[in-house]
Computed example of a mutant assay.
Amino acid sequence: MDKVPMTVQGHKALSAEFEHRTSNERRRIIDAIAEARAHGDLSENAEYSAAKEQQSLNEGRIKELETLLALADIIDVTKLSGSTVKFGATVTFIDEDTEEEKTYQVVGDPEADASAGRISISSPLSRAMIGKEEGDSFEVAAPGGSKSYEIVKIRYI
Rank of each mutant, 00 (worst) to 15 (best):
S81L: 00
D73R: 12
T98D: 11
A51E: 11
G10S: 04
V107W: 09
E19P: 05
M6W: 06
A13R: 11
T92D: 04
M129H: 12
G145T: 09
G131K: 10
G117N: 07
G145Q: 11
D31A: 11
S126A: 14
E59P: 03
G108F: 02
S23F: 04
T103G: 06
S137Q: 08
K153P: 06
T78Y: 02
S115Q: 03
M129P: 07
E47I: 00
I154G: 01
S15Q: 08
K147T: 00
F87K: 04
L71G: 10
T78A: 08
K52N: 12
Q54C: 04
T90M: 09
E66M: 12
K79S: 13
E111S: 07
E47A: 15
V106Q: 11
L14N: 11
A116G: 03
A112T: 05
I157K: 13
S15Y: 01
I157Q: 15
E35Y: 11
K102E: 13
D73T: 08
I30W: 06
F138Q: 07
T98E: 07
I62A: 07
T67D: 15
A116I: 00
A38Q: 10
K147R: 13
H11N: 11
G10V: 00
S123K: 04
E19G: 14
S43N: 13
L57A: 12
P5F: 02
I119W: 12
H11P: 02
E44C: 11
S81F: 04
M129A: 13
E19N: 13
A72T: 05
A46N: 11
L57Q: 14
P143Y: 06
P110K: 12
A38Y: 02
E17N: 10
A32E: 15
E111M: 04
K147A: 13
S120D: 07
E101Q: 06
V4C: 06
E66H: 10
N45P: 08
A142Q: 11
I33G: 02
L65G: 02
L125R: 00
K52V: 10
E66V: 04
E47S: 14
E139M: 09
R26T: 15
T98S: 15
L125D: 03
E25V: 03
H11S: 13
E64G: 08
